[in-house]
């Protein structure tokens, strides 16, 4: 019997990536429409921030460019998770229709199979917009850039990507228990995106920050490194808090694993 050589995961991922990309390009007009639609949505929320600052100029001592720095890093992290973890985002459908059963038969890890099952390139519009807003914010904010601060910014971006990706995995994991998608999970992902558009302390609520530090580590991904970046906090630990989102990722994967173990097919 012929032995098949196992393709390394990164090459397999590349194959799926180009497959999804080509598939999206087959329907160019539809792709462009949802691309612009997505961009328009985040453009509206950007415009809202802009106009509020037109009236108020600052909020709790934060300038427009500082707030935009917060907003753009969240936007980029959120859209990265939406582009690449679309399979987890729409996972409820797979459990309901029973097509998850097919993935169980594949000779790859389940996380990998779900990861490559869907990609949503139309969301790149938001990411590009995030880059543009970042460019504006970085050139207009009074930040004295040092290597440490640049590193903090990169960690912040990484933290946001990991944070929103973890939430999507958690959301998919919860589907095993509830079968249907849970709208409540949107409070954390979309709510986190909205909340994180501004530095978290402007809301003036201590429990809110504690919640988003210890239970859902949005503050670790973005708020604390942001304080370090803008010189409001000197302690280097503030710049390292995004690493904590990796622990959150592990917890979310844990929930997913428990879900898989108790999974009973809904049938087709």
């Amino acid at each position: 019997m012929k032995q098949f050589k196992k393709v390394p995961a990164h090459r397999l991922y590349g194959t799926f990536f180009s497959m999804h990309l080509r598939a999206a390009m087959e329907y160019k007009s539809s792709f462009l429409m949802s691309f612009f639609g997505m961009t328009l949505t985040s453009l509206a929320s950007f415009f809202a921030i802009w106009l509020l600052f037109d009236r108020f100029h600052t909020v709790d001592g934060y300038t427009l460019s500082e707030v935009l720095l917060c907003y753009s890093v969240i936007l980029m992290g959120f859209s990265v998770s939406e582009i690449f973890l679309r399979g987890f985002d729409t996972f409820a459908g797979q459990v309901q229709s029973g097509s998850f059963d097919r993935l169980l038969l594949r000779p790859r890890s389940l996380l990998f199979s779900v990861l490559v099952s869907r990609m949503e390139f139309a969301r790149t519009g938001r990411f590009l917009q995030g880059i543009l807003v970042t460019a504006y914010a970085v050139t207009h904010a009074d930040i004295v850039w040092t290597p440490a601060r640049a590193g903090a910014y990169l960690l912040m971006l990484l933290g946001c990507c990991v944070f929103f990706s973890s939430l999507l995995i958690l959301q998919a994991g919860v589907c095993f228990f509830t079968i249907e998608g849970l709208e409540v999970m949107n409070i954390f992902s979309h709510g986190g995106k909205e909340l994180g558009s501004y530095p978290l302390d402007i809301y003036g609520s201590r429990p809110l920050i504690l919640f988003f530090t210890f239970l859902v580590p949005l503050a670790c991904a973005q708020y604390y490194p942001f304080l370090y970046l803008t010189g409001r906090a000197d302690c280097g630990l503030y710049a390292l808090t995004p690493l904590w989102t990796l622990a959150f990722l592990l917890v979310c994967i844990g929930v997913w694993r428990i879900g898989v173990r108790k999974y009973q097919s809904t049938g087709s």
């Binding site: 509020l52 009236r55 108020f56 100029h57 600052t58 909020v59 709790d60 849970l182 709208e183 409540v184 949107n186 409070i187 709510g191 909205e194 909340l195 501004y198 402007i202 809301y203 003036g204 609520s205 809110l208």
Partner: peptide
């Protein structure tokens, strides 16, 4: 029920946000 819960969180978030703007510059609010 889920919708109601979501809307509560959303409502609180917006109220906190606008109160922050109000605190910053009451005369412009």
């Amino acid at each position: 029920l889920a919708g109601i819960a979501t809307q509560f969180c959303w409502g609180f978030m917006y109220i906190l946000l606008y109160h922050a703007f109000r605190r910053t510059d009451p005369s412009a609010y």
